[in-house]
Amino acid sequence: MMPEISLNVLDVAENSIRAEAKLVQILVTVDPDRDQLTIQIIDDGKGMTEEQVAKVTDPFFTTRTTRKVGLGIPFFKLAAEAAGGSFQIKSVPGDGTEVTAVFGLSNIDRMPLGDISSTIHTLIVYNPQTDFYYRYSYGSSAFELDTRQIKEILGGVPLDTPEVSAYIKEYLEENKSETDGGALI
């Protein structure tokens, strides 16, 4: 198991990058009224066949050759279902994959969301060839970050330039705490 949900997000988004996605959308929705935390990871990568989708939650299925087990998706599914939630994957070959995990927000068995800003920062800064759209919402407040917009402003200055990397980290952290008022999630 992953000790925090943000690490599942990092892991599953890395799958999207390996599936040659050009754009990865990560939507984190905290809904205290419905007592739900919903994570969606939507990519436009190469997608999976129905057969692969059916197998992907099986730990003994993987496409890699360096080891025989693939625990990324099973971990994420287990974390959601153990917390009174649900888990779904939709995929179309050539179109992309959409992973949705819903967690019971107040469920005692829910792992903490953890450092989601660090996950998003890591994805953005070290995968400059992939675009990311991130939206974090808490109740009726929300903020977003779109790397297509950022790259347009930067005009060729790399995302891993120390000042740019630090700015992205601050942007994510400050806007998150303004959005959720510093709630422990």
Binding site: L7, D11, E14, P162, S165
Partner: peptide, 24 residues
């Protein structure tokens, strides 16, 4: 290494520390 095994074992802070130090 940033696959499931690496991430679960704590690769995210390692990657960030390396990148920050190399830049610094």
């Amino acid at each position: 290494g940033m696959a499931t095994c690496g991430i679960a074992a704590g690769a995210r802070p390692v990657l960030n520390a390396l990148a920050e130090l190399v830049a610094e």
